[in-house]
Structure formats: structure tokens, C-alpha cells
């Protein structure tokens, strides 16, 4: 059970934070279809930063537990770097959509094409292959939190095993950011104004709010979160390897945002659900659901009848299929920010 919760969180947390990235852009009135691309870019910059730091021995792993604090600082710093990279990359979208009043769907698509191309171009030059791995060691030995760091032992129970063992600090940073930014969106002057710009920019402008600035802010926050989310995804699900791909995760986050009706609490719920599906796809064969040492789903997939359907292919397909079905049921009720996707033109009233 601990494993299931941990693994679900591994997928749910980046989904959640990237979906929130979508919320900040769309609530300000800009459709950010480029979440996928920004994640790819953030993942690359994060991995590259770690690669460089390791190569130049800025951070050195010393006997595991002793300097785990330093290693956590290293992770936090990399998150910041990836976030800033994402924010800068998203400026391309902001410039096209806000200043040039471009078609936001095409602009976002362009970034989704640009990110993998750009990233792979450099990865090939840096690593002479199509993925960029850590310069030395692996993510688990460098960055994973273990209960032994806190002097805790096996017997310390469910809570410790689930939340303090074999987890990454990124999970908690993301959750904290998620809460803080949700409060920012709903309880502060900035949040009120941002949301007004996504609903009725003409109204906001008539009250002296600078719609351009607010939309830039929305997109930049969005880019930061998506870039950081991309790195978190690469760190926690693929051993800090950047390969110019996040397997449609950014698009899933968009879907999560829509199911969540652009509201943080609902998004958290939707992200957990999809995290569960993703977790099943990734590790159904090692899931011990009822704790009896038997891998139920693995056994099912080996069953001559059930295995025809309930196999790896099925679990990989599931998140996308479910999102399409949920989309079909929720689209009638969903309420997007009214002005999203429409370039703001001050001359128009």
C-alpha cells in the first residue's frame, strides 16, 4: 500500500503542478497548449544543470547519509533553475500571444515542436546519443530521501514508510507550492486581477488594470511551474534522464485542468486519479494491492483469458482513454475562463 501511494504521488504531483501551470495561463486569458514543450525544456535544463554541476564537482556525493541536506539543496536549486528556464521559454508564447495577438493554439504547437527539436539537438551534441543522463550515479542514490536519514527504522509504521522513505523532496515542494499558489489565486489582489483578465479583460482594463502585464505574469508563472514540473517528472519517473519527451504528460495535465474545471481543489483530485492510472501503467507488475505478497495485476495479465485485455498495453492506454471519456461527460458542465484564447485588443470595446 505504501508503494502504491508513493508511486501514485510520483505521477500525480507533476500532473498537479503542471495543471496548475495551465490554470495560471488560462485564468489570465492565454491558452497554454505548450505545457508539454515547456516541460520538455525544463526537464532538459534541469538534467543539464545536474550534469554540469556533477562534471565540475560543485556537488559531490559523500557517503550517502552524511550530506543528504546538501543534496536536497542541490535538488531545490535545480528545481529553481528548471523553473526559470521554463519561464524564459514561455516568454516566446507570451510575446506571440500578447504582443502580436497570434493564434495561441498554433503558437503553443510551435513551442511543442521547438522544445524537443532544440533539446535533442543539444543532447546529441553533448552526449552523442539521444538522451542525457546524470554525469555520475543515479537519482535514487543522490537525491532520494530515506528514512535512515532521520534515524527512523523499519518498524516505524505506515506513515514513515509512505511519506518519509524513498521519496523525493520535490513532491513536498510541489505540494506546498500548489497550496500557496492556490491561495495567491483566490485570496490576493494579484489573483483577483489575474482572474478578471481571463474573464473580461475589457472590464479589467476599464478599472485601470494593465491586461498585458497580468497576462505576462500568468504565462510566466505558468512557464515556471511547467518547467519545474518537467524536471520533477524527469527526476522522479525516469532517473533524471532528459530525452526530449515527456510522453504526453503536458497534455494529460491540460486534460486534468479541464476536468478540474480550472479550480485547484478539483485539479488535485483529478491529478490523483490520473496519477493512479499512470502508476498502474508504469508498475502494475510490481503492485501488491492487498499486501499478501502476490502481485494481483501481474497475475491477471498472465491469465490466459484476462491477460488478453488486462496487460501492459491496456494499462498504458488507460489514462488517455479515461481522460477522453471523462472529457465527454464533463465538457457540458465545464466552464473555461471566458476570454481565454482571445487576444486582448484595447481598441475594441
Amino acid at each position: 500500500m505504501s508503494f502504491l501511494i508513493r508511486e501514485t504521488l510520483v505521477y500525480a504531483v507533476p500532473l498537479m503542478i503542471v495543471a496548475l501551470a495551465g490554470v495560471f495561463a488560462e485564468r489570465s486569458g492565454i491558452i497554454n497548449l505548450a505545457l508539454e514543450g515547456i516541460m520538455i525544456f525544463g526537464a532538459f535544463i534541469g538534467a543539464f544543470f545536474i550534469y554540469e554541476m556533477q562534471m565540475n564537482e560543485v556537488f559531490v556525493l559523500q557517503s550517502g547519509a552524511a550530506n543528504w541536506g546538501t543534496m536536497q539543496m542541490f535538488v531545490l536549486l535545480t528545481m529553481l533553475v528548471a523553473g526559470i528556464a521554463g519561464a524564459i521559454f514561455s516568454l516566446l508564447l507570451a510575446f506571440a500571444a500578447i504582443n502580436l495577438k497570434a493564434d495561441q493554439t498554433i503558437g503553443g504547437t510551435a513551442l511543442n515542436l521547438l522544445a524537443p527539436a532544440f533539446v535533442l539537438f543539444f543532447i546529441r551534441i553533448i552526449a552523442n546519443q539521444d538522451d542525457l543522463r546524470m554525469y555520475r550515479g543515479d537519482a535514487a542514490s543522490w537525491f532520494m530521501l530515506k528514512k535512515s536519514f532521520f534515524g527512523l527504522k523499519e518498524a516505524d509504521g505506515f506513515f514513515v514508510n509512505t511519506f518519509l522513505n524513498k521519496v523525493y523532496i520535490t513532491t513536498y515542494v510541489c505540494l506546498l507550492l500548489f497550496v500557496l499558489l492556490s491561495i495567491l489565486l483566490y485570496k490576493t489582489k494579484f489573483g483577483l486581477r489575474l482572474r478578471a483578465c481571463g474573464e473580461n479583460p475589457q472590464a479589467a482594463a476599464s478599472l485601470g488594470i494593465n491586461v498585458f502585464h497580468m497576462r505576462y505574469a500568468g504565462v510566466i508563472i505558468s512557464g515556471f511551474l511547467a518547467g519545474m514540473g518537467g524536471f520533477v517528472y524527469a527526476l522522479t519517473t525516469s532517473n533524471c534522464v532528459a530525452n526530449g519527451d515527456v510522453a504526453g504528460f503536458g497534455f494529460l495535465a491540460l486534460a486534468v485542468m479541464i476536468f478540474g474545471n480550472w479550480k485547484p481543489l478539483n485539479i488535485a483530485g483529478a491529478a490523483l486519479l490520473f496519477g493512479l492510472f499512470k502508476c498502474m501503467a508504469a508498475s502494475y507488475s510490481t503492485l501488491d494491492l492487498d499486501g499478501n505478497g502476490q502481485y494481483l495485476l501481474l497475475n491477471l495479465s498472465k491469465d490466459p483469458v484476462w491477460g488478453k485485455i488486462l496487460n501492459a498495453n491496456f494499462y498504458r492506454l488507460l489514462p488517455y482513454l479515461v481522460s477522453l471519456i471523462v472529457l465527454a461527460f464533463t465538457s457540458k458542465k465545464s466552464r473555461a475562463p471566458k476570454a481565454e484564447g482571445i487576444p486582448y485588443d484595447p481598441g475594441k470595446r
Binding site: 495561441q104 510551435a110 521547438l114 532544440f118
Partner: peptide, 16 residues
């Protein structure tokens, strides 16, 4: 991949 970068830039430009 350099050609993919070029293609992406062209798509970006076609957005506006």
C-alpha cells in the same frame, strides 16, 4: 534535429 528547430521556428512565425 536542427531541421526540426527550423520547422518549429517557421510554425511559430506562422502563428502571427
Amino acid at each position: 534535429y536542427i531541421t526540426d528547430v527550423i520547422i518549429a521556428v517557421i510554425v511559430y512565425l506562422s502563428a502571427f
